[in-house]
Structures are given as C-alpha cells and as structure tokens.
C-alpha cells in the first residue's frame, strides 16, 4: 500500500495537495522518505506515533519548510515560495494556540490575516468584529489574548484561519488539551466546514470520519486507504507495540 515511485504529472494535479518524491532531512537525518501523494478528498486524516514524521509532513505541506528533494504543490502553487498565494490556498491550525497567536488583543489577531491578504486596517478590523459578533463573541474584540482560556484561544486560532477563507485547512492534533465539551463543539464546527481538512493526530478517533487516512511511520507511508481498514490495522499495531516496552528506542 506504499506510494508509487513514479512522478505524478503536473496536469492531473493542479488542484489538491501534491507531493512528488518529496524528501525532508533535518541535520542529516531523513525525516520523510521521498513521499509521493496526491490528496484531493474533502476529509483527510494522517495518523502516526510521536516522532513518525507526521508533524514534519504537515509543515512541509504548509510550506513552513521546503523539501530537500522532490516538490510540493498545493492547488498548483509552491507552498514554500509563494507565501502570498498560499494565504488563499491553505490555512494551518497549530497544536498549541500559544504558538499561533501573534497579537496582544483578539481583534488584532483576527485582523492580521486579512491585512496580509491586502485589506486595509480599518476594513480588516471591521471584518474581525463582524466575525466575532456572528459567533456571539463581540465582547472578545478588545480582550487581551493572554486572558483567554486554553479552549478560547484554540477557538480564536480557528476563527483566525476561517476568516482568511483558505481552500484547505491543516489541523495539528486539533483536540489535544481540550476538555470534552470543547472537543465536541470543535468537532461539530469542523464537520460543517466546506473546506478540505487535513487532520493530523496520534489518536485514531480524531480521524475516524475521514474519507481517506494515511498512516505514517518512520517517515514513510505504512498504509493509505479508508479509515475502517487503515485505522483497524493502526490500532492493532499500536496495541501490539504497547504490549512490549514501547519507548526504549531513541530516535536516530
């Protein structure tokens, strides 16, 4: 079930997420081994253990790092170089909201992305306030981002991404650290979105409703297919490893 080695023609791949023999090495160690993938489904899940390379894959798709070999295209654009073009193509929800929030107040955080998309400060602030009002959170506008709870900060990060209306949204462990009601609310919200969602998680439950699930291990695709098949195999393997002493190996 591993990916084919032949290059995907640029033709067939003008939309969606395309990786063509993309390799990532960090300080000499190969993290992702020449991945070739074409993701066009609406709901895509990526599972793997800690250190499997799934976060590196997400950073590669988001254009936060460039491949050391091969190429990556998102809707036909190179995510690592065409940063302005990527704003409309792809948004990313980081695992830790504190790694995402750049501004001292809620409305500035929301407005920043819109300014980056070329709107004026006044226009961006007005749109930010309208979005907050539509969510019943108008009073959040001038609030300091540091005063929000963890769940509220997570929610703000999602709103920030949604306001920029990207065609694809990458979610890194979207439910980690959230209490159960917040998880429920967030998963309902995500399920209703028209965008393509790529969810990365170590938890098979987080991607059980996906159209397609990839299982990454040691920087390679171990399995790729429907969640029923891939997740059953993933769960069985995780249970098998858990029976043994799971974490004695050091990376590298």
């Amino acid at each position: 079930m591993s990916a084919p080695a032949s290059p995907v023609s640029a033709h067939a791949a003008s939309s969606g997420i395309l990786l063509d023999r993309a390799r990532v090495a960090l300080s000499g160690r190969i993290i992702l081994h020449d991945l070739t993938l074409h993701l066009t489904e609406a709901r895509i899940g990526i599972v793997g253990r800690n250190g499997s390379g799934k976060t590196t894959l997400l950073r590669l798709i988001a254009g936060l790092i460039a491949p050391d070999a091969g190429r990556v295209r998102i809707d036909g654009l190179d995510p690592a170089t065409d940063r302005k073009g990527m704003l409309a193509a792809l948004g990313i929800l980081f695992q830790n909201p504190d790694h995402q929030i750049l501004f001292p107040t809620v409305e500035e955080e929301l407005a920043f992305g819109l300014r980056q998309q070329g709107r004026t400060q006044q226009d961006a602030l007005a749109a930010a306030r309208a979005a907050l009002a539509a969510e019943g959170r108008a009073h959040w506008g001038p609030a300091p981002t540091s005063a929000l709870s963890q769940g509220q900060r997570h929610y703000l990060c999602l709103m920030t991404v949604l306001l920029m209306q990207p065609r694809t949204i990458l979610l890194d462990e979207p439910f980690a650290g959230l209490d159960l009601p917040t998880q429920d609310r967030l998963s309902r919200r995500l399920a209703a979105l028209p965008q393509r969602l790529v969810t990365i998680s170590h938890d098979p439950a987080a991607v059980a409703d996906a159209d397609r699930v990839l299982w990454i291990d040691a920087g390679r695709i171990t399995a790729d297919g429907s969640p029923a098949v891939v997740l059953a195999a993933f769960r069985a393997e995780m249970a098998r490893i858990g029976e043994r002493d799971a974490d004695t190996d050091l990376a590298g």
Partner: peptide, 15 residues
Amino acid sequence: DDADHAADALRARGG
C-alpha cells in the same frame, strides 16, 4: 524556542 514558533506562525500567515 518561542521566537521560532512565532516565526512559523508569521510565515503561515504570509510573513
């Protein structure tokens, strides 16, 4: 470390 993450977040939204 925080600065690295902030740089990522900034890059994710157009630099």
